[in-house]
Amino acid sequence: MGAVLETSGLTRNFGAIMAVDDVSFELRSGELLALIGPNGAGKSTCFNMLMGQLKPTKGRVKLGGEDITGLSPRQVWRKGVGRTFQITSTYSSMTVVENVQMSLLSHHGEILRFLPYATRQYREEALSLLALVNMADQADRHCAVLAYGDLKRMELAIALAHDPKVLLMDEPTAGMAPKERVALMKLTADIVRRKGVSVLFTEHDMDVVFAHSHRIMVLNRGALIAEGTAEDIRNNTTVREVYLGGGTIFADQGGAAHA
């Protein structure tokens, strides 16, 4: 399996604060890679640099071998990287299906057309994307009235609209009920398998992380301190000390995830 997305020496400081310090990793094809770490570890900063919302102070980001460091979010998206946000951000004045259609219109380069009715463009394609995330029955609802879990699934459909090679998901299950979390990640894992997308995600819920990721990276104070399978991470003493502060709680949680 080759690397789809690769960083080398990625660094970003805000004044004297090193938010991300010399982070190098690779996301392999078809992989679900988790990036975990305590609050303030630099996960979101890292994400924002991958997607172009932030420019790195140092270091490079490569997508399929091509250097995409410093490109704008727009350009990164065009290269085939999709993203979902920690706090959903949707077009609240549109229906569910129109939200997905927007992304399709942009993908097909039809944003600047004045003539056709937007609601009639790529509707079928958008509906099948919604079917993929089990949202087809809500397609014509006003997205401002959706439940949070449904919004998250809609966002996933939007992120998949341009057939991305890589999907970046910043805390995909944040703010959801425990049951919904597992369901959403299961759905994501399914889609990844079927569509061959590679996913990098951050997450606070260890159940979700241990149950679904192929590989886990741990970030602390901006630096990568461990990397490996769920088993490796669970047994890694540094991670226990630094990230999980102790070990008894962690052992319990690990056990729960296993059960």
Binding site: F85, H107, I158
Partner: peptide, 16 residues
């Protein structure tokens, strides 16, 4: 309207 509703989302899906 997309730019008005959520500039971040619009930019992240390729809309200038």
């Amino acid at each position: 309207r997309a730019a008005r509703d959520s500039e971040r989302q619009a930019e992240a899906t390729g809309i200038d």
